[in-house]
């Protein structure tokens, strides 16, 4: 009986097996890199907004605290985006004819809200609450980076689960004194003794922090 496959097929079959492995590996590596890259996470990508609000100017230039505008950060899950009333508290007097602020004035006149593009969009299957973090010694800067250096706002962290867990497993490396929550320049010391003391003081139950149900409720 004649051979079904030509002897040359031996090469083809081997090559196809190798090629298959290579293609799958490349896809996994490229896909994984894409998933973590700024292309997908938007990390480091300044969002264009209708009003080019500069945190750099307001925080660094004027010394306004995060809590001045994000008023619900210490008691609510949502840090809060200020009402137009807050902008107009100063801008009724300062830069009150600047064309760049016309959408703000229009919003105040008409009562129609300003629209902002969300910079941090956590997946809906992850539970997150600002107040518990702020009240347990996690500073704004730990997650949001040097907002005081952002002329337009961008995100500096992926919000991936591995990133959350890094702190949930080692809170002592990140927690800070409560007086430094809104500080943009606070740095943790090299040894974690101070951090461990704070973890104890804040009554942070480290062993539960990586339970699934803490974030997936």
């Amino acid at each position: 009986m004649a051979q079904i496959f030509h002897p040359g097929m031996k090469v083809v079959s081997r090559a196809s097996i190798i090629l298959f492995v290579i293609v799958v590996t490349v896809l996994v590596v490229v896909g994984g890199a894409m998933y973590r890259s700024g292309y997908t996470t938007n990390v480091g990508n300044p969002r264009e907004q209708k009003v080019p609000f500069s945190h750099e100017h307001h925080v660094n230039g004027l010394g306004i605290s995060c809590a001045y505008c994000h008023t619900s950060v210490e008691k609510s899950a949502f840090a809060g985006i200020p009402p137009t009333h807050t902008c107009m508290t100063c801008h009724s007097q300062i830069w009150n004819t600047a064309p760049v602020l016309e959408p703000v004035r229009e919003s105040y006149r008409t009562g129609r809200p300003l629209e902002w593009i969300r910079v941090h969009d956590l997946p809906d299957f992850a539970y997150f609450n600002h107040s518990i973090h702020v009240n347990k010694g996690v500073g704004c800067e730990t997650c949001h980076g040097r907002v005081d250096r952002m002329p337009l706002t961008w995100s500096v962290n992926t919000l991936h689960m591995s990133w959350c867990l890094d702190c949930h497993r080692n809170p002592e490396k990140y927690v800070r004194p409560k007086s430094e929550i809104y500080s943009m320049t606070w740095k943790a010391g090299t040894d974690t003794a101070a951090g461990r003391r704070l973890v104890e003081e804040y009554d942070i139950h480290k062993q539960q922090l990586s339970d699934c149900s803490i974030c997936h409720r």
């Binding site: 896909g31 996470t41 985006i81 009402p83 969300r118 969009d121």
Partner: peptide, 20 residues
């Protein structure tokens, strides 16, 4: 008083990355 819109683009990109 404020509205926030979510940009859908990253979601699409995430889907492509995961599918790859």
């Amino acid at each position: 008083m404020r509205m926030i819109r979510t940009r859908t683009l990253p979601g699409t990109r995430r889907a492509i990355a995961l599918a790859a």
